[in-house]
Amino acid sequence: MTRHLNPVERDSRRGRGAASCDSGRFERHARELTHDGWDIPEETALLRTDVREERPRSLINYVRSPDIPFDRTINPYRGCEHGCIYCFARPTHAYLNLSPGLDFETKLIARPHAAEVLARELRAPRYRVAPIAIGTNTDPYQPIERDRGIMRQILEVLRAFRHPVGIVTKGTLIERDIDILAPMAAEGLVRVGLSVTTLDAQLARRLEPRAPAPARRLAAIGRLSAAGIPVRLMVSPVVPALTDPEMERIMEAGAAAGADAASWIMLRLPREVAPLWRDWLEEYYPDRAGRIMNRLREMHRGKDYDSAWHRRMRGEGPYAEVIGHRFKIAARRLGLDRPTAPLQAGLFRVPPQKGDQLALF
């Protein structure tokens, strides 16, 4: 088990995923919690969510990764209150001099002017339209979106520009925005990916403490699909010897709910995620910890994680091949392997704003 400078008592982190709040890797100095020497009982304070705000100078983040099907993303929030212990985005909090552990899920950054900045970027003469991906780093429908509404404002801008968008989420709050998404879907402008990691409610609560329960996510797939919004079931991440036995059952449940496609990604443990994950295993599943880590290392050339392009998402070797083969068989049987229609980029338009010269014809 990794030794952390700042382990947090279990009572203080109820409803959270990580067990520590070590300093980010870019900080010059590490802070360590120590006992003050006084043997006086003190009340344990429950960790609360703290939300700060920032005004971004730009919102669209361009990416050049050769193993992903998009080249630009948007993040309404930094950090994610869902607290998924396996989240590969945790290391990004280190760039803010915050902990990828508990800070990632309790010290959040909201971007209330995101829609305004996005509209400005889309109006730029040099802008060239292509689908924007939202939710690939942190979830746009995490709990604070209910009060902030930043994602909804972004969707209103995308609708006005008739801009294609792909959304990835675990959040059932997406149902709130069906009134925007359904008309966009009718024009081929939106596709949703909804992640279901496990059907076991107890396991889900431990893995993803503040994300909606699996049954609730499946219900959201049904509501989106019924509204004409295409939904991809994302079986991700697949955790060896923990969630992988459920793969076919998850796919069957997603297909029954109305998903028209499916995908999968193997568990990824970049940078600080690996020790956080190992701690989580020792706390909740010590009997399987060794087996799970051995499987992961088999797929990543003896390491907890291999970041090489085209290997990082699924690993390699016999076990990864078996998972891929099982997925293909189930997808074919359930009709989840059919090609999906590409998002439409040709409908893009810059809407008029106050003061614009109107066309005569």
Rank of each mutant, 00 (worst) to 15 (best):
R16D: 06
V273K: 02
A160D: 12
A253S: 15
L5N: 10
Y62F: 15
I292Y: 03
P318S: 14
L296V: 11
F361D: 13
L194N: 04
D22G: 07
C21G: 09
R333F: 08
Y127V: 07
A274I: 11
G335C: 12
K107A: 14
R148Q: 14
L267Y: 08
T49Y: 04
N75H: 06
L122I: 06
L96R: 07
V8N: 03
F88M: 07
S99M: 06
L358S: 13
V51N: 04
L59D: 00
A220H: 02
G290M: 13
A226E: 11
L203N: 08
L347H: 08
G317V: 04
L98E: 01
L102V: 03
R216I: 04
R25H: 13
R48A: 14
L96T: 02
V190G: 06
V239G: 01
A289L: 10
P212S: 08
G258N: 05
G315K: 04
D304R: 12
D71G: 15
R271Y: 15
G258E: 03
H325Y: 10
R48Q: 14
K354H: 04
Y127T: 08
H29I: 09
I132A: 00
I180G: 05
H4V: 03
G335A: 12
L281N: 03
L224P: 01
A274E: 14
R326P: 05
R206W: 12
R10H: 14
A211G: 14
S99Q: 02
W309E: 10
R223N: 09
G15M: 07
Y285V: 08
E248R: 15
V51W: 03
G135W: 01
V117L: 04
R14T: 14
D11C: 08
L199C: 10
N61Y: 09
G17C: 10
P209A: 08
A201H: 15
T73A: 14
R52W: 07
R126E: 15
V117D: 00
R31F: 15
I40C: 10
L334G: 04
F26C: 05
N97V: 01
A211D: 05
E246M: 11
P140S: 07
M251R: 00
R146S: 11
G315F: 07
R25S: 09
V231G: 07
D36Y: 13
I60N: 11
